[in-house]
């Protein structure tokens, strides 16, 4: 039997010296949905992802992925459970080539012993090439990541997640700082990769959101302000009130 939700965030709270960046938040993610989170700057969107992927410790609440409680797991365990996270600023290994970046994320050889004996074989090479094509970097495999453009780094980071084939992918502002052409390509890329997984996307660009979202949640001051289809959210008076002008 298929569960209704793959991720259940309930009553999630975090407080930084008394300031509640995320406050009693509930969020449910269905299989194969593209859930977009919007909200003004400082609303707690990034913090929410930080909490889910174990980067920040929560003060209370629960985050259940299938039936695993993520709040008590380490970052790497959460990754192994099938949750991938892309950071707001591109975070790739600058000293390594595109190929090596993808290779380091290939889901094999995670233990100390595994890392010592890891060898790149043809299967792995094939998979890396395949991913590189998806993220439009097939011609740059031997290029150092430091030499990539901002947009290409964003794609590379998405590729590093894709190669692990996560069930839930969380992307923090994937098109921020991209050119119009890059945005279009990214939208195309996202549409392709959301076909067989759930995705949480944080985004400001409304055109882009309309393009990809199956459901939208509006966050404000660490709480859910409104949730539903893009149309529903856009017509919600509460949203209009806090969001106009942004």
């Amino acid at each position: 039997m298929q569960e209704r939700f793959i991720l259940k965030v309930e009553d999630l709270t975090v407080s930084f010296d008394g300031f509640k960046a995320v406050d009693g938040l509930n969020l449910y993610i269905e299989p194969n949905e593209c859930h977009v989170i919007i909200g003004p700057n400082g609303a707690g969107k990034t913090t929410l992802l930080d909490l889910i992927c174990g980067r920040t410790a929560a003060s209370g609440g629960s985050v259940k992925f299938h039936d695993k409680e993520l709040l008590s797991m380490r970052e790497d365990q959460i990754v192994h459970a099938g949750v991938g996270r892309k950071f707001q600023t591109p975070s790739v290994y600058e000293d390594l080539t595109v190929f090596e970046n993808l290779e380091l994320n290939y889901p094999k050889g995670y233990s100390v012993f595994g890392a010592l004996t890891f060898r790149c074989d043809d299967t792995i090479r094939g998979r890396i090439t395949e991913i590189a094509e998806t993220i439009f970097l097939e011609d740059m495999l031997d290029e150092k990541a430091a030499y990539l453009s901002h947009g290409q780094k964003q794609w590379l980071e998405i590729g590093m997640l894709l190669i692990q084939d996560p069930e839930l992918l969380m992307l923090d502002e994937p098109v921020a700082g991209m050119s119009v052409a890059e945005r279009k390509k990214t939208a195309e890329l996202l549409k392709r990769i959301i076909t067989d997984r759930s995705v949480i996307v944080i985004e400001h660009d409304m055109g882009f959101v309309v393009d990809i979202a199956t459901r939208v949640t509006v966050l404000h001051q660490g709480q859910v302000l409104s949730e539903g289809s893009m149309e529903h959210v856009q017509n919600d008076p509460k949203v209009v009130e806090v969001y106009l002008g942004h």
Partner: peptide
């Protein structure tokens, strides 16, 4: 980049 390595799935 210790954080990057963690989120690549390494302990």
């Amino acid at each position: 980049q210790p954080d990057r390595v963690r989120f690549s799935g390494y302990n």
